[in-house]
């Protein structure tokens, strides 16, 4: 309990420190401050969509899924393709309304992510459960294969999102500064997902099995539960959530073949600083790193320190690990 309290203190200190720095730096300009906070939450939620899958899969199955970022990227490509004209699937004549096409595009990304998740777990990973190093190599290899397939299908040129739809273009005003409604939508969706997964873990039998499996999956199996089917479920869910992340990020970030690795690395930083396998740690860690990136982006404007935002996740990780070597909510195991 004391350990938990010290973690919570560390979280509050870091977040308050970041916000105070930003407020001071912007000279008390609430508009700028508000935008930084919202932008931080937005980036934190995108990170959570990659990191939550990484964290639960690692916790339950002891597998670091290096293909997680690739599923994010794949989600972005699928959503882009379905939304825009002239892709592999062209829905523009069937569903002419882009507002309607967007949820279809997101759903398509989730389905593709989940399907490839099942294939990877059932078809390949399952054979390697007793060989951790092989699993790392396998998920890394699969991510390379998917990246090359994506280049083959969609070419190597990055896409930037051109389709205009309602949610994407509306803005609202906060302390005199405009902010995209779409980003707010992602923040809201992220929070709902954080709560939804927490409820799944806390309130359902499947959740109890997952939490027990994180501690000791062999014992769960000895109680008469087919742990491998739970592994498949969790792995599929993790991949589907990553693809969802890519799909909702695409209107902002577009789709490019470097998207996956950027998010994977930040995602791993979040999982480690949150405490390997801890769901709460991942949720809090995502928001913390998202805010730190946003503050760094704001601080780097007009300086020659343009690299600052991209190294920020690692700086936060180092800081937290110095304070708490097993991460925010990690067990020392």
């Amino acid at each position: 309990m004391a350990v938990r309290r010290s973690s919570i203190v560390a979280i509050i200190v870091v977040i308050v420190g970041l916000l105070a720095f930003n407020l001071l730096k912007s000279g008390g300009n609430l508009g700028n401050f508000g935008i930084t906070v919202l932008s931080g939450l937005f980036q934190g939620m995108l990170l959570f969509l990659v990191a939550s899958g990484l964290s639960i899969i690692f916790g339950l199955m002891d597998i670091l899924n290096l293909a997680q970022g690739t599923y994010f990227m794949l989600g972005a490509y699928v959503a882009y393709d379905v939304q825009h004209a002239g892709g592999v699937v062209d829905l523009t004549s069937v569903v002419p309304d882009p507002n309607l096409r967007f949820p279809i595009a997101v759903a398509a990304a989730i389905v593709v992510g989940a399907a490839l998740g099942v294939v990877l777990e059932r078809g390949l990973l399952r054979r390697l459960y007793s060989r951790p190093i092989f699993q790392l190599v396998l998920t890394f290899g699969v991510s390379l294969v998917i990246i090359e397939l994506i280049k083959f299908i969609w070419s190597t040129t990055p896409y930037s999102w051109t389709e205009v739809f309602g949610l994407r273009t509306q803005t609202f005003e906060l302390f005199g500064q405009g902010f995209s409604v779409y980003r707010l939508f992602i923040i809201g969706m992220g929070f709902l997902l954080i709560i939804g997964i927490a409820l799944l873990l806390r309130r359902t039998r499947t959740g109890i099995i997952i939490r027990a499996g994180v501690e000791d999956s062999a014992m769960v199996e000895a109680l008469g539960i087919n742990v491998r089917s739970v592994f498949t479920l969790v792995f599929t869910l993790g991949c589907a959530i990553a693809a969802l992340g890519g799909a909702v990020a695409a209107p902002f970030l577009g789709a490019s073949s470097s998207l996956g690795n950027a998010f994977l690395l930040q995602g791993i930083a979040v999982v480690v600083l949150g405490g390997m396998g801890s769901y709460e740690g991942t949720a809090v860690g995502s928001i913390m790193v998202g805010l730190a990136i946003a503050v760094a982006q704001d601080a780097a404007i007009g300086t020659s320190f343009s690299v600052l935002p991209s190294i920020t996740p690692m700086l936060v990780l180092i800081l937290i690990l110095l304070l708490r070597p097993s991460g925010l909510f990690g067990n020392t195991r």
Partner: peptide, 20 residues
Amino acid sequence: YVPEHRAIFKELSVAENLQI
């Protein structure tokens, strides 16, 4: 099966340890 060292799920409540 009641294993050596008990293998209680430490993060789960007593109730959840039984429910599972």
